[in-house]
Amino acid sequence: MDQIPQIPKEKFKLVHDENNKEQEKIGTPSLTYMQDVRRRLFKNKVAVVCLTLLSIIVLISIFAPVIAPHDPNAQQVTLSNLPPKLGNLNIPGMNGYQNMGGHMVDAYKQAGAPKGTSFILGTDYLGRDLLSRIIYGTRLSLIVAVLATLVDLLIGVPYGIVSGWKGGRTDTVMQRIVEIVSSIPNLIVVILMMIVLKPGLTSIVIAIAITGWVTMARLIRAQTFQLKEQEYILAARTLGEPSMKIATKHLIPNLSSTIIIQTMFTIPNAIFFEAFLSFIGIGIPAPNASLGTLLSDGQKAFRFLPYQMWAPAIILSIIMIATNLLGDGLRDAFDPQSSEH
């Protein structure tokens, strides 16, 4: 500070104007909100893994008829309860051998299966190929989940928007209804509905959705309340834009993060309910396979043929874990403060 640095004289020219332009260049390029969300999501390794796993499972379900090696409902009673066998590879546990009275016996030979027969995950008590049943079962469970979630959205989102937007007495009445619906344990409503309706896909979807929309409606209502007071929406209102237009143009886009995140938590919930109902025997009727019916069948034989339950249990758990984690990842991506790195 004491000795004054020697600087070439010409450097002391005033340069005001140019500089003001310079300033614009400073700063990281600004991304649009959605791009930013996507970038954050893809930086989250866990979320990416879950997304990949789920994509694979969804793809397999969509192309089940092409991928499944057998008809899931074709029975071959002679080939019942065969252990897993992967081609002619001799991998312990996957070679078609079974412990019988202390000896490892080739179960395929014993059942008199034609040479070359192999079921990767074995067969069930009716000789149906388990792998195919799991593929179809996953497909059915996912269909239930997606449909239930859709119905959830179709009821919950408009309900929440109307309740939050109208406010006042409408809101009070609508909230009372929500309160009552949510004070009955979900599952009991679902079970009651299943008793009243005929067992089957539609009934399950209706039964699950009839209580599921409540959470969505609550969240959407709370957000709508906040959004309603935002300036651009106030402006749109004072300008007399029709409510429908405000809802579709301003509200829904701003609610989308809430909707997407909540959806990720509704799906595992629906999958759980389906599995639960089928497990206690009032869900998907036989012979159709869902993850729930497979678990239920598997449980009956679990003591002796544990693989019959392990496979659907693992798939079910993977779907549940992956959707939950992906939901977390999405929440962090949409709202980085919430996780505060």
């Binding site: 595992p268 759980f272 599995a275 639960f276 497990f279 678990l295 449980q299 679990f302 003591r303 544990p306 339950m309 249990a313 079910l316 758990s317 549940m320 874990i321 939950n324 984690l325």
Partner: peptide, 22 residues
């Protein structure tokens, strides 16, 4: 905690029963 949230109690029950009891 995610495992706890995701694995249905009836799956867990069957597994526990098989390994710890049976």
């Amino acid at each position: 905690s995610i495992l706890g949230l995701s694995i249905p109690s009836f799956v867990l029950a069957v597994l526990l029963q098989f390994y710890l009891a049976y």
